[in-house]
């Protein structure tokens, strides 16, 4: 009988990363490992999820359900609460910690009704003149049959358009994984914060590796070329602030991570509540209007 594995796994050589277009050598193993480490931390099963933060940051959180059209998506939690004395509306993408909860939460991958529920709650925020705080943590919007039938693309697109118009302060915090359009669907905010070990990307490292090298094993290299860490995004001025995590990562101390995020949310909200509804909309528009790199 043939021994398994035929060739020891350690002997299988990983293909070399592609050379950079400008002739520079690819970054060393350290940089690659650093980005990959962040990806693993951002997806850590013991990392605080939206409800873990919500419980620690707010008081009197009341969850509300349903998009009033199709159903209630458990991958998105929404409701209202107090941040100190300030009443706020809250929306967050929720992952599960064990298999049972993950099935209930669909691994944090929202369906269209999730985005529509989020929009319903955010519009309430505008109607009742309360700020909106969102927690981003999703591998991406769910790519399923029902999701397509119910208009996943329309649901996300609608949120992007409507969030741009909302006349109330919006703060978004990427707490774990910011997976592409599925993340942006609740991410068009006046201020975008990112936890120190969170990621935000247009495509997952797995997807990128499959396209670039036709090899899903090249995720380490893909995590590096995508520039998806909070530190990268801050350097591109896509995010406004990096929230420090406790030593070793947020999963080691939920209370301390939540405390840091709470402070940042309070500080940013303080700066926004003084602005007029018109100024808020304008600030948000100009923020996203200026994003992009091109030669004119």
């Amino acid at each position: 009988m043939r021994p398994f594995p035929a060739k020891g796994f350690s002997q299988v050589k990983a293909p070399k990363p592609l050379a950079r277009s400008n002739g520079k050598k690819p970054k060393g193993d350290d940089a690659i490992s650093a980005a990959w480490k962040k990806v693993q931390l951002a997806r850590h099963p013991q990392r605080p999820f939206a409800l873990d933060y919500i419980q620690r940051i707010f008081t009197d959180f009341n969850e509300i359900h349903g998009d009033r059209v199709f159903g209630d998506d458990q991958a998105i939690v929404a409701g209202f609460a107090y941040l100190g004395d300030q009443p706020v509306f809250v929306v967050g993408q929720q992952k599960g910690r064990d298999t049972k909860e993950n099935i209930k939460r669909n691994f944090g991958m929202p369906n269209p009704e999730g985005y529509r529920k989020a929009l319903r709650v955010m519009k309430m925020g505008e109607k009742f003149k309360k700020p909106i705080l969102t927690f981003i943590d999703t591998p991406g919007a769910y790519p399923g049959l029902g999701a397509e039938e119910r208009g996943q693309s329309e649901a996300i697109a609608r949120n992007l358009l409507e969030m741009a118009k909302l006349k109330t302060p919006i703060i978004a915090a990427v707490i774990g994984e910011g997976g592409s359009g599925g993340a942006l669907g609740i991410g068009v905010a006046n201020k975008v914060l990112m936890m120190e070990n969170s990621i935000y990307s247009v495509i997952s490292p797995e997807g990128c590796a499959a396209i670039l090298w036709n090899n899903r094993e090249m995720i380490r290299q893909a995590s590096e070329v995508l520039r998806l860490t909070a530190q990268d995004l801050r350097s591109f001025e896509i995010v406004d602030e990096i929230i420090p995590e406790p030593e070793g990562g947020a999963h080691l101390n939920h209370d301390s991570a939540a405390q840091n995020l709470k402070k940042a949310m309070e500080k940013n909200l303080k700066a926004l509540v003084g602005l007029s509804p018109k100024a808020l909309e304008e600030q948000r528009y100009q923020k996203f209007r200026s994003m992009g790199m091109f030669q004119d």
């Binding site: 992007l160 358009l161 935000y200 247009v202 998806l228 209007r289």
Partner: peptide, 22 residues
């Protein structure tokens, strides 16, 4: 989206949609 432009590509979705809102 254009993967090669990473997060900049993603943000074009928000930028174009915001313009259409106006």
């Amino acid at each position: 989206a254009r993967m090669q432009e990473g997060i900049f590509s993603l943000m074009q979705m928000a930028k174009t949609s915001a313009a259409l809102a106006r």
